[in-house]
Design a protein around this nucleic acid. Structure first.
Length: 502
DNA sequence: GCATGATCATGC
DNA sequence: GCATGATCATGC
């Protein structure tokens, strides 16, 4: 040990930090805050052509931390158990930041995942503790000049989220084990997702999966964009604090005690069956959504929150929740019911937001037929013709997880909260949606007035989605045409909600 | 009653 | 002013 120590301190002084100490690495990483690599490293040492687009993560490893980038299954700093993640943020109009993309954690090895257990999984081995560094993404700025605009974070999966993250991991594993790795979708899960690895396009090597001969595209475990946004909000708080005093703040994501304790005295138990750890009784309101999901996961928490309201008529819900329709045509009324039930204030459900969940309220007749098709944002005729399916907005939507809240008209003519469930589009229908999208793209080039109708596909069609007929977009034919978007067919929605189990 | 076109309500 | 979720209107 003595012998080693000498060499070790030499290494430390050479690197400028102690590679066996998370704190030392973190403190060292802070030196980049507010700066770009070009301001810190001796640029004469840099071998790469700085005009080239490169991977900033690799450059940080090589020139800032002083080790060669590798693809080891261990964390980047194995002695400290710290995995380095360098990730881009966009500046929003209001001066804050949002994630440029999902945070890719580690590649999924389908064959190995099938034999893994959570605690010893390759994901946990590599990413249990991560050092997150955020740079401002600007298209024109080469990587060496991009500034690290936020304080770095030493990040562990927050205690409140751990349950759901583990459930997500298990769900992905289950799909892989059942020989359906090719069907994986980001919408299968909530916080942790199996994202496509690589941008696609060029021929990529397909991988084998257990229990199926179908070769699969590469995927990686990732944290969803919306989830990363919350981490960034947290980093932003830390950054603004550090300008005043140099003490890192408590994580706003970790609300274990701070926030919940302010609710003391409001203890209400909506479901007596609910397992509640003894030490928590009395300390937290047990029917808070965020408490429920930290214990049970998002799906079960949602079920418990909605259970007491199922079967209530519109009027009963209105009275119980203290919500009143503004006018007869108040289109957000049913949505506000959903948010109120979930316990949100300000029409905002942070837990669902972070999971990238899209809430859809659906009114159906007594025969479960939706009164309306389901709309998605309008697309731009000139843009869609140059897009790839994988990068399209509709694809993004289709991959999401939805919360369907179904209001059904009874024989008595009263609308009741009938069913609440999570849904994401099955693989085979995503293929059909893709076909409709490709067909749309092709036909826009020919004549943007003639696009796929609902009679042409059982899944999706194209319809106007505009303020009025004067609300137009330019077409490749040089004309102006009313804005249109993709819609899911009524009959398709009916099929889906009838097949749901809960 | 369905398919399709047209528009509304809300929040930022 | 616009994006987005949601609903109305009309012709067959």
């Amino acid at each position: 040990m003595q012998h080693f120590k000498g060499k070790y301190s030499e290494l430390m002084s050479h690197l400028g930090y102690d590679p066996s100490s998370p704190n030392s690495i973190y403190e060292f990483a802070k030196r980049l805050t507010g700066k770009s690599l070009s301001e810190i490293v001796d640029m004469s040492r840099v071998a790469e052509n700085i005009a080239n687009k490169g991977d900033l993560g690799n450059m940080v490893e090589k020139y800032f931390f002083g080790y060669e980038p590798n693809s080891s299954p261990l964390p980047d700093f194995p002695r400290a158990g710290v995995e380095l993640k360098v990730t881009g943020v966009n500046r929003k109009k209001n001066g804050t930041y949002s994630a440029k993309e999902r945070l890719v954690l580690t590649t999924i090895n389908y064959m190995e995942l099938a034999n893994e257990e959570w605690e010893a999984s390759s994901l946990m081995v590599k990413c249990r503790l991560m050092l997150l560094m955020f740079y401002l993404y600007e298209r024109e700025t080469t990587v060496f000049f991009r500034k690290f605009v936020l304080e770095p974070r030493l990040f562990e999966f927050p205690e409140n989220d751990l349950k759901q993250i583990q459930l997500d991991w298990q769900k992905i594993k289950d799909i892989v084990v059942s020989g359906r790795a090719h069907e994986l979708s980001e919408g299968d899960t909530y916080f942790l997702a199996a994202c496509r690895k690589g941008s696609g396009g060029i021929k990529e090597t397909l991988k084998s999966q257990p229990n199926s001969d179908i070769r699969v595209k590469g995927r990686a475990f990732s944290l969803k964009v919306k989830y990363v946004n919350k981490i960034i909000e947290e980093a932003l708080v830390a950054t603004s604090h550090s300008f005043r005093q140099d003490t890192p703040d408590r994580s706003p994501l970790d609300t274990t005690n701070s926030e919940l304790q302010t609710h003391k005295g409001e203890l209400r138990i909506s479901n007596p069956e609910l397992p509640i750890p003894k030490e928590n009784v009395g300390a937290v309101p047990t029917n808070e959504f965020k408490f429920l999901y930290s214990q049970l996961g998002i799906e079960e928490a949602t079920r418990l929150k909605f259970d007491p309201f199922l079967g209530m008529t519109e009027e009963e819900l209105s009275n119980v929740l203290g919500l009143f329709k503004q006018g007869k045509n108040s289109k957000g009324f049913y949505r506000s019911i959903v948010l109120k039930v979930l316990g949100s204030k300000n029409d905002y459900a942070p837990e669902l937001e972070r999971a990238g969940i899209e809430i859809k309220t659906i009114r159906v007749n007594s025969n479960w037929k939706p009164y309306e098709a389901m709309s998605f944002p309008a697309f731009n005729y000139l843009e869609i013709i140059n897009e790839k399916w994988e990068d399209s907005a509709f694809h993004e939507k289709i991959e999401q997880r939805f919360l369907f809240v179904i209001f059904r008209n009874g024989e008595d003519g009263l609308l009741r909260l009938e069913k609440v469930c999570y849904w994401n589009m099955p693989f085979i229908d995503r293929e059909e949606a893709r076909r409709v999208w490709e067909d749309t793209r092709r036909r826009v080039k020919v004549d943007a007035r003639d696009l796929p109708k609902s009679s042409e596909s059982h899944v999706a069609h194209v319809r106007p989605h505009a303020r009025n007929s004067r609300d137009t977009n330019p077409t490749p034919q040089g004309t102006k045409l009313v804005k249109k978007g993709f819609w899911l067919n009524q009959s398709y929605i009916r099929e889906m909600i009838l097949n749901l189990d809960n």
